[in-house]
Design a protein around this nucleic acid. Structure first.
Length: 266
DNA sequence: GCCATATGGAAAG
DNA sequence: TTTCCCTATGGCA
């Protein structure tokens, strides 16, 4: 259930554990069996993330493409335990084991097919990709910025939490049209995503609250939430805004819950 | 045990 | 715009 920062961490971990090694690949659940048989025993070169997509590369230039979707999860272990639950894919070496459960996508691609997938992925703030095409599209779009931020072709790796938080940090109403933003505001938002998401890669949690706004009493509770960090608005509906005290609201946009402060984000 | 929910995205209508 | 897929978990009875 990750946003881009988690996928980048997983890419690093897979590279660290498996690169330049022969890897046994299997699929206890069965749905990846044919591909696993094809690739097992190959040498893994590296894993890399593009937004929320993960590509695990092998020396023959084929790649396993993984997208976790809402439920997908990697588990890293020193050695493979008796398979428990539904494991789509396992990577095993003498020293390490990675288990993948519940991904939205998991398939073996040729390098040509991988190229096609990559075309659908826009600039990624964590990689500090060039945002100029995104800027052009956003600044001329009539779609709400809250929707544009979820478009992976525009902001690869941004998910529901970073969307809500970055809008709050820049006092932007989620319903504002993309073209209502100034160039400066767009640049500030993009730069902020780079900083926030790279911090997320380092820490493995999403922290977006400036120190001066951290309410002592809420620290513990916020930290216990699933994203692991402290936030202004995400899943805080009904609670008071850390900045102005207004009640945080929840509405639906693109079928996802969107959280925002009606006072700070007019 | 049952039900709702979840940081996503593609396909169907 | 709705439906569907993939799986685990937390709250509640």
């Amino acid at each position: 259930m990750p946003e881009g920062h988690v996928v980048h961490r997983q890419a690093k971990e897979i590279t660290r554990l498996f690169s330049r090694q022969q890897v046994a690949v299997d699929s206890p659940q069965g749905r990846f069996s044919d591909s696993a048989k094809q690739i097992t025993g190959s040498v893994l070169t590296k894993a890399e993330a593009r937004g929320k997509h993960l590509f695990i590369k092998f020396t023959d230039s084929s790649e396993i493409h993984v997208h976790l979707g809402l439920y997908g999860k990697w588990t890293f272990l020193e050695s493979p335990p008796e398979p428990k639950g539904l494991i789509r894919l396992r990577l095993i070496t003498p020293g390490a084991c990675a288990e993948l459960r519940g991904p939205n996508a998991c398939s073996l691609l040729t390098s040509a097919e991988s190229k096609e997938v990559r075309k659908r992925i826009g600039p990624d703030p964590i990689r500090r990709d060039d945002p100029s095409t995104t800027r052009d599209k956003v600044l001329s779009s009539s779609a709400p910025i809250g929707a544009l931020l979820m478009d992976q072709k525009l902001f690869a790796g941004v998910g529901n939490i970073y969307r809500a938080e970055v809008l709050f940090r820049h006092n932007i109403n989620p319903n504002d049209q993309g073209r209502s933003l100034t160039n400066e505001t767009f640049n500030a938002v993009w730069e902020d995503l780079c900083v926030l998401m790279k911090a997320g890669v380092r820490t493995g949690r999403i922290d977006t609250v400036y120190p001066e706004h951290e309410p002592r009493a809420m620290k513990r509770k916020a930290r216990e939430d699933r994203h692991g960090g402290e936030v202004y608005v995400y899943r805080r509906d009904g609670q008071p805004c850390h900045v102005c005290g207004s009640e945080i609201l929840m509405t639906s946009m693109l079928g996802r819950n969107l959280f925002w402060c009606p006072q700070c984000q007019k």
